[in-house]
């Protein structure tokens, strides 16, 4: 093999850094949408690499459902301090209090969909013209269709049937007043790439990803953590199990997996052997065949 050849991880890293720098160069007010999950954590670390030794020249924006795992919040605050970056929080609770969003009711109630309102309001309030996210194309079939630079109209909507051609690495971020872009620097990464990168770069991650003991219930095949926001049905008796999370979302709808993987090495082994996608544990995608496409069209992450 030639000595001038990059490993696949280095090539993906280089592509992501290129995209992040393009965003800062092409837009006036970019932001990084930070969920506290491993993908947005990797994005934050890639951003640090992209501009080192300067600070990351954009804020992290957290759309806070108010239904967070405490571990996520603890990690978020640690990271903001570690990277010396500004944090902006958009609160779903505030959107509800202001009457902008309406809380769902019932056993499977979730604030996941409500995030769209808060996200679009936050983008408008701070006049962000580019919002970077850690979404990956391998996560979901509608995401598999997304461009790196994804145009949003003045209502924040995505038009999947009429996306701009995106050639080579020539990203076209031109837009009219009021429109914005969503940008996905790690589009081409798989779940495995993210874990391998976390391992090779020694990136600290929230404790949730490692196997731990937790009080959970089982509902429709999903293992859910008990929390003040999970309404239990009469026959649902919580029990303590050893679990970990493959994704970190809204607490009442993010499913855990039974696991004893308590190191990155073991997590990687587990991901390699897994027969289900990571989103297979998320109730929000199971609502309909095109749940993700529908949410994305209206402005979701």
């Amino acid at each position: 093999m030639s000595q001038y050849y990059l490993s696949h991880l280095k090539e993906l890293e280089s592509e992501a850094i290129f995209v992040i720098r393009e965003v800062v160069a092409q837009f006036e007010k970019p932001a990084l949408l930070f969920s506290g999950g491993k993908d947005s954590i990797v994005l934050a670390y890639l951003s640090r690499k992209a501009f080192y030794p300067a600070r990351i020249p954009f804020p992290l924006v957290h759309i806070d459902t108010g239904h967070n795992f405490p571990e996520t919040m603890e990690y978020r605050d640690w990271l903001v301090n570690e990277l010396g970056v500004k944090l902006i929080v958009g609160s779903v609770q505030e959107s509800i209090d202001k009457g902008r969003a309406k809380e769902e009711t019932g056993f499977n109630a979730s604030r996941n969909a409500l995030q769209t309102v808060t996200l679009l309001d936050t983008i408008e309030q701070y006049k962000f013209d580019a919002a970077m996210g850690g979404a990956r194309r391998d996560e979901e079939k509608a995401r598999a269709k997304e461009r790196f630079f994804s145009h949003r109209d003045e209502f924040g909507q995505w038009d999947p049937k009429n996306q701009r051609p995106e050639l080579w690495n020539l990203f076209n971020g031109r837009k009219h007043q009021g429109e914005h872009f969503r940008v996905f620097p790690i589009s081409n990464w798989t779940e495995m790439d993210v874990w391998q990168y976390i391992q090779s770069e020694r990136i600290p991650i929230p404790k949730l990803y490692y196997a731990h003991q937790r009080e959970v219930i089982e509902r429709d095949g999903a293992i859910l953590s008990t929390s003040p926001w999970l309404k239990l049905k009469p026959n649902e008796i919580p029990s303590i199990r050893t679990v970990r999370f493959r994704t970190c979302g809204d607490m009442p709808i993010t499913g855990a997996v039974e696991s004893t993987a308590d190191t990155i090495e073991k997590i990687i082994e587990e991901v390699a052997a897994s027969r289900k996608t990571e989103r297979g544990t998320r109730a929000d995608d199971k609502r309909s065949e095109t749940a993700m496409e529908d949410r994305k069209k209206s402005g979701y992450f």
């Binding site: 194309r137 391998d138 079939k141 598999a144 269709k145 999947p160 049937k161 996306q163 589009s187 081409n188 798989t190 495995m192």
Partner: peptide, 9 residues
């Protein structure tokens, strides 16, 4: 209609 990206190893 539009490109879909897929990954395997």
């Amino acid at each position: 209609i539009d490109v879909a990206y897929r990954y395997f190893a």
